[in-house]
Structures are given as structure tokens and as C-alpha cells.
Design a protein around this nucleic acid. Sequence first.
DNA 1: TATTGTTATACTCTATAACTATA
DNA 2: TATAGTTATAGAGTATAACAATA
Lengths: 178, 178
Amino acid sequence: MAAVRLKLMAKALPSTATRVPYGLLLARLGQDATARFRRALRPLGLTAQQFIVLKQLETIGSTSQSALADALGIDYSNLATVAGELCEKGLIVRTREECDRRRYALDLTDEGSALLEDADRSIGSGEQDMLSALDESERTELWDLLRRMADSLELCPGTEAEACAKADGEASGRQSTP
Amino acid sequence: MAAVRLKLMAKALPSTATRVPYGLLLARLGQDATARFRRALRPLGLTAQQFIVLKQLETIGSTSQSALADALGIDYSNLATVAGELCEKGLIVRTREECDRRRYALDLTDEGSALLEDADRSIGSGEQDMLSALDESERTELWDLLRRMADSLELCPGTEAEACAKADGEASGRQSTP
DNA sequence: TATTGTTATACTCTATAACTATA
DNA sequence: TATAGTTATAGAGTATAACAATA
């Protein structure tokens, strides 16, 4: 009631002062991207989380659960749950490593790879939808900027080469963003 | 130890084929941004969702719940819940509009504005952390690209001017991304 | 009838802690 | 003892549907 804070005169240009913070833009766009994943993946019986883990496993190849959790920057216990689900569905296999029997080696099965192909197709259109405002060179530029941010935060490694290079460098702490 | 999957030859450039999809990068960075919000806001007794709604209300000024939900691209029922919480905390006020008594007008209270200032400060450092890999001009560029994506998806309007311009144009459908 | 807002509910995701087993 | 993984649980976010009040 009362004090209705009219601000009609502020109709000027989007100056730096009135900028929505980066984090807000990223958070909202990320939510939207995740929501698109969910809608596209539901018919395939995959959750967004399961897809992300599956996709990352395809990208970086065979790893342990802890290495995968580090790569994704998500919680160990949550990854254990997701890995269990994927295992039950027969999309990945877990085998104890001989050298250190505490560790599991995670690998995509053929079913997993096949499902991932379907998933990529389902996701494609939503992806294009999100990027429709940008032309080819802008998309490349955006990808590059996002990639560098993600790298500096050690999130979501992009290529096997990158992943290996990084694994050599660190291989320490249990949680990447504690 | 053992089978470390040496792949040193693959250390070439990240070709288009091996690129992680945009949606995956956005989803992961968005999750990280949200997690940073949560950590920064917890001491203030705010959830990430509450902050986003509050911040957006500050940005676009007085609106109805449905307009705010449209602006944020989130679900009406969820916004009703969050608005109720913010109201209980005394951070916003809801007043029925005279011209259409179905609608609420939402406005920040002085407490809400004050808390938002504290929140912005708490969030600042995490924000800088995320952007540390980019220099000043790259940040501007990133912001511009994200802004244009968000605009094309009608998510997270950035300025009052933009919001007004947009409100004139559309003012239709109940859910922005159905 | 169509729209605005509310409530309820199920599902997904995040975060913490306590636990087992291997090293 | 330290590390890899598991389980349990509470809290946060998302998605639907059913409903009341107003237009």
C-alpha cells in the first residue's frame, strides 16, 4: 500500500547501471536450456541429469565416478545415484578396476551410445531455437566465451584432449566448488 | 595407475564434431551460477528463486504476477508461491488493482530494496569469480550475446524501457515457453 | 467463457551426513 | 588414516491439474 515508487522517467537507454547481472542471465538461460532438455528427453525416458552425465561420459571416455563428478562439478553422492540409474537401464557398465578395487570404471554400452544419438537428435531443434538470434560467427564466438568460462571453473570438459591435459595438472580435491 | 588411456595425439583443435553442445555449456554454467546465488544468499535468508524474482521486480518495476511470470519465463503457480513467501517476509506488497480486481500489483517495499542491495553485494564476488577468465571487452561481448539470446526467448527482460516496449507488443499467452 | 491467481501434488535436482570397503 | 563409493534425507526448483474469483 502507499509508496508505489513510480519511475516513469527512467525510460532511457540500457546503461551499465541498469544491467541485469551476468549470473542472472546465465542462471535463467541455463534453466531454459535444462527445461528444453527435459522436454526433449522425456519421451526417451531420460532425465536432464542422466543425459548430462551420459553425454559427458561419451565426451571424455572411460573414467571413474569421482573423475566424472569432478569433470561435471557435481556432487559425488548425486553422481552415484545417477550412475546407478543408468546402470540399471543398461546404458553404462560399472566394472571394478583391478589396480584399485575401490574404483569403478564407467563405460558407455552400445545401448547407451545409441540412445545418446537419439537424444542428440531430439535436442537439436531446441538448441537451434535458443540460438536463432545469433548468426554463425556470433555462435562460434559465444561458444568460445562460454568454453573459456567453463574451463576456468573446471566445469564440463569439452574434449578428450582437454580432459587429459587437465587430469595431469590437478587430480586433487574431492569437490571442485566447495 | 594402469590403463590411463593415453591419447596424446588427439591434442589437436576442438573441432566442431567434438564440441560439447551449447545447451550443455549453458545448462552447466547456469547451474553453477545458481549454486553461487544460493551460497551467497543463504545468510540473508533468501533462496535463489526469491532473489531472481525480487531482482526482476526491481528491474522492471511494478507489475502483475502474470506479467512477472511471463518476464521470467517461469510457471505461474510457482511464482504465486514465491510471491507469497516474499510477501510474508515483508519484502514486497501485493495490492489488488482497481481496474481489474483479479490482478495483483506487486511492488518492492523499502525492506525489499535494502535487502536487495545487501544481496547484490554478497553476489558480487562469486560473479567476478565466474568471469575471471574474460577481459573487459570480452565480458561486454558475452553480456551482449546472452542478452540477445534472452531477448529472443523473451526471458529475463533487462531494462524498464525494454520491458515496457515488449509489454506493448505482445501481452498475450499465459505461458511463454509451453 | 476466458483470465488471474491459489492450492495441491508429484517429480527432479542439490546438498549434507553417515556409512562400507578398500588402500 | 585417507579415499571411492553408497545410502538416506532434507531442502529447493519444476511441472500439472484442479479450483475460486473476476471479467
